[in-house]
Amino acid sequence: MVEELFVSGHRACAGCGIATSFREVMKAVGKDVIVVNATGCSEIVSSPYPQSAWKVPYIHSLFENVPAVASGVSHALRSMGNDHTQVVCIAGDGATYDIGFGALSGMLERNDDVIYVCYDNEAYMNTGIQRSSATPWKAATTTSQVGSAVKGKPQGKKPILEIAAAHKIPYAASTSVGYPFDVAKKLKKAMGIKGARFILLFASCPTGWGLDTAKSIQATKLIVETGIWKMAEYENGKMTGVFKPGKRKPVEEYIKLQSRFKHLTPEDIAAIQKEVDASWTGLE
């Protein structure tokens, strides 16, 4: 039995996909780690003083600086002769795609010895479901509302995995909490590599998405099965693998589960389907 390193009693909402994610991530990386956490749901639900859901060394500093804090931890370890302890960042999409983007790029460019795990639930959930640059096209959030003039987020999702990979870091990969064996496999692979490693982990937020808590994991499988989310791998900037879901399900199956998309018209859904289909050109 693998020891749980992210334990019960945390204050994540019922059905929280990121809680399941952290259990998976921590079981994969083991005890010889230092977790560096960005402000966000992950930190708020897991570390209200004097309790902690983390059984490994853990530090939270600020929202936007987690890659640089991790660089400092990693450099201090190596400088003091510790060449084994893994430094693992855990940060949400807001911290990663938006406010910490500069610091992330700096850490990746320096190729610091850090595993950066971004749990992507596609909005600023902790502060009340505001849009981030990870929020998908048309999704409703409290800062991309559905009104008479504007209907959901006008922009699409920032391609953070490709941006991370473009730094030519040794390893960048995306996965989904609905595929725990894939999550574990990619983290184990990352553990065997030195330098900056980036894992983009799709994780569900029933509260923010208007999703039945019971279908939290189902949604993270469906996004892969519909081909909207690719589970891909990049090594030194080049794509080296992508999980092929077989005959892709219609995107509508994923979209209709969530009230954040309830205002989408058949034309909107058709446009998403078209874009997803185009994105697989040459990959299937």
Partner: peptide, 16 residues
Amino acid sequence: ESELSAISALIGASAT
């Protein structure tokens, strides 16, 4: 890549 990252790296290093 920034002064904010400089002090943040110090936070990580000092905590370690």
